[in-house]
Design a protein around this nucleic acid. Structure first.
Lengths: 167, 167
DNA sequence: CGGTAATCGTTGTATCTACAACAGTTGTTG
DNA sequence: CAACAACTGTTGTAGATACAACGATTACCG
């Protein structure tokens, strides 16, 4: 994806979305694209793996025994199963993750964070966090809670949306 | 890209980003992914082209003579030039766009919206707008202006960031 | 002017992702 | 318990994007 911006025009608009909301949507798309690009560049400049790897490593890190099944992981990082299967191939080749047989369900596979993977997580986070701290957090200012609630509400409206406490 | 969520952990955190900001970032990523997926599915269900095409068509629609050069368009939709070149190939094959020689700079190419392209824009917008109106706008509620300003500020912090009036 | 540097768009190549199909396994129901 | 359905992960294939390299054109300077 991708994508930057739609907009409203009197000529082609039969739907009730006001200009302010569309402007917010455009800004949202643009900010997303620029932020991910920036963080991706920062990681590459530091000789670290791409951002997608971070999500996988983190999801495993916070999981009970530092492992998840393929389908759980795919759901956590919002990727198709085939997509995740191949992503795990690459991460496993780098030794950051390990596949293990799943005793209780012989169809499944446990994907398990290795010590090297945990170490990589520690290396990546500062770079990642710096991007957020420099470009995202200051822009939100004191409204970070409002923004969080708004987007948790978006997620809730769409699929499952992990509500946090009301701030 | 992709990606869902980072998070903070006492073990691995030397950077000053507080939990609330990280929660906002996670929600932001998740909302983006879910929104784009939803709108993409809606468009496909309606037998319409993907969302990326909309951005191109719209950028041309709002341009002076309904045409832009390749590099301008690439910038507008935040795509690499090679990426846009191939995207335009596909859209042109569908007849929604036309390549024209650029008189004032013979290196360049004008990419021009056709009448069919404008018609397609009119077909796509209602579907697109419905996604925004149903899932995005309600979640923002009366804070859409705050959100807009915050993300315009993000864009400004990163690259160029088309500021709108202060609401 | 002449030559070098910069810019524009396209193409070869590699990477990454999704969809469809598949084999293996589990669950369910008659 | 047998048959059928549902689910899990992988693989073939196609699509989309980025990077690097290229020819063509323009801009900048000496």
């Amino acid at each position: 994806m991708t994508t930057t911006a739609p907009h409203r025009d009197p000529d082609l608009d039969p739907t009730p979305v006001d200009d302010e909301e569309i402007a917010a949507w455009r800004a949202f798309l643009r900010a997303h694209s620029l932020m991910l690009r920036q963080i991706g560049e920062d990681l590459e400049a530091a000789g670290l793996p791409p951002l997608a790897w971070y999500d996988v490593l983190w999801a495993l890190y916070e999981a009970p025994a530092r492992r998840l099944q393929n389908y759980e992981l795919a759901d956590a990082v919002l990727l198709s199963r085939s997509g995740l299967s191949r992503l795990v191939d690459r991460i496993a080749d780098a030794g950051l993750v390990r596949r293990t047989d799943c005793p209780e369900d012989r169809r499944g596979v446990h994907i398990e964070l290795t010590d090297e993977g945990a170490a990589m997580l520690r290396q990546m986070w500062p770079v990642y966090a710096r991007g957020i701290a420099e470009h995202f957090a200051p822009a939100l200012g004191r409204h970070s809670c409002t923004v969080r609630q708004a987007f948790e509400s978006v997620a809730a409206s769409l699929g499952r949306g992990e509500h946090g406490e009301p701030c």
